[in-house]
């Protein structure tokens, strides 16, 4: 594996200066932030990139004002089941999904604005023992769910007000799917990572499972974040939340692997290690957009990497108010969202 022979290149002093604080959102009514995301929202004829924040019992929509300030537009109150994550639909406008559950996702809801009633609404999209969910382009949602006997992998189409009748069941692999990634610029291609470290490729249009390929890495349960095809190869960006430091690999947070889907052979292209001084267990959660990755480390800092260079390019230390809990890219990697447990969300220009 080429990646494991490379010496990780790290900036000796990744600085906070490459992240410039633009604005700060503080939800005074939120006691425990669980996720943050961005969504396109149209109001009075203009489409704006808005911010969605979630705490356990409610989800709020924020719109931009002048001077980098933000105003809360609406708060959806949820029921007794806690919100676990926001599921953004990449190119949708005026709607966003959320996953709710206790230890695992038990239901997915759509939050939207109804112009008919001139009101904000919510509708139930799916229930079950849901292991993974991802919003796809063209208002589609893919999820893997388990019953005692079998796994179901399903792509749902969403209308502006809820689940539509069009859906596609995908052929499920034997092992549980943990994460999905759309293959960029290939509308019908979808990949997933499984609990035994396989990459699977589906044809979403036909539902066929096209290939299962082993990641070839000793750490289990890799998570796929991004996939793109180039020159007959499939490149997949993976993270390894459960990896431990080793002499041969360093302390890998993210890896880019090239697969030949025809032969299922693979080779490591680049890997991105933790910044110096961050050893042992590595990070809690992360996000990838374009060639940039960001993750919250167990130290409470946020690290940002350039995945093409394998460099850590910025490090945001824990603030005076406490550790960082969340980090997400906005619709482009030019803007990073960073959240603290008390509901404060900071927007950084990167």
């Amino acid at each position: 594996d080429v990646a494991e022979q490379l010496t990780p290149v790290l900036l000796s002093d990744p600085r906070e200066e490459s992240l410039q604080l633009v604005s700060k959102l503080k939800d005074s009514s939120s006691s425990c932030a669980v996720d943050v995301s961005t969504v396109w929202w149209e109001a009075a004829g203009s489409r704006e990139l808005s911010v969605v924040t979630a705490c356990e019992s409610s989800v709020s929509l924020w719109k931009p004002l002048a001077s980098d300030c933000w105003a809360k537009v609406y708060t959806w109150q949820l029921g007794e089941i806690p919100v676990i994550q926001i599921v953004a639909l990449p190119d949708a406008c005026n709607l966003v999904c959320i996953a709710l559950g206790d230890l695992e996702i038990g239901e997915i809801r759509l939050l939207f604005y109804s112009s008919e009633n001139d009101s904000f609404k919510q509708s139930l999209v799916k229930t079950g023992n849901i292991k993974a969910v991802l919003g796809l382009k063209d208002r589609r949602l893919v999820s893997s769910s388990r019953t005692v006997q079998e796994q179901q992998v399903e792509v749902l189409s969403l209308s502006e007000t809820g689940r539509s009748k069009d859906g596609q069941t995908l052929m499920a692999p034997e092992e549980t799917v943990l994460a999905f990634a759309e293959v960029e610029d290939m509308r019908d291609a979808l990949v997933g990572t499984t609990v035994v470290n396989s990459i699977v490729i589906w044809n979403v249009k036909t539902g066929q499972l096209l290939k299962k390929m082993h990641v070839g890495y000793p750490y289990p349960a890799s998570i796929c974040h991004r996939a793109y095809a180039d020159s007959g190869l499939l490149f997949v960006v993976l993270s390894h939340p459960h990896a431990k430091e080793s002499e041969s690999c360093g302390n890998p947070a993210f890896r880019v692997i090239a697969f030949n889907p025809k032969t299922a052979r693979s080779t490591g292209v680049m890997f991105s290690s933790l910044p110096p001084g961050h050893s042992g267990r590595q990070y809690l959660e992360g996000d990838v957009k374009d060639t940039s990755a960001a993750a919250v480390l167990t130290s409470g800092a946020i690290a940002v990497w350039d995945l093409q260079l394998g460099h850590c390019t910025a490090l945001l230390p824990p603030g005076p108010d406490g550790s960082w809990a969340l980090t997400r890219w906005a619709t482009s990697s030019a803007c990073l969202l960073a959240g603290q447990r008390d509901g404060t969300v900071c927007l950084y220009r990167y």
Partner: peptide
Amino acid sequence: CSESDLGPISLNWFEELSAEAPP
């Protein structure tokens, strides 16, 4: 990545695998 490491590469891998895979 060289072809020898990864085996023969096809630019049409998605269409070819779709034609080969069970429906």
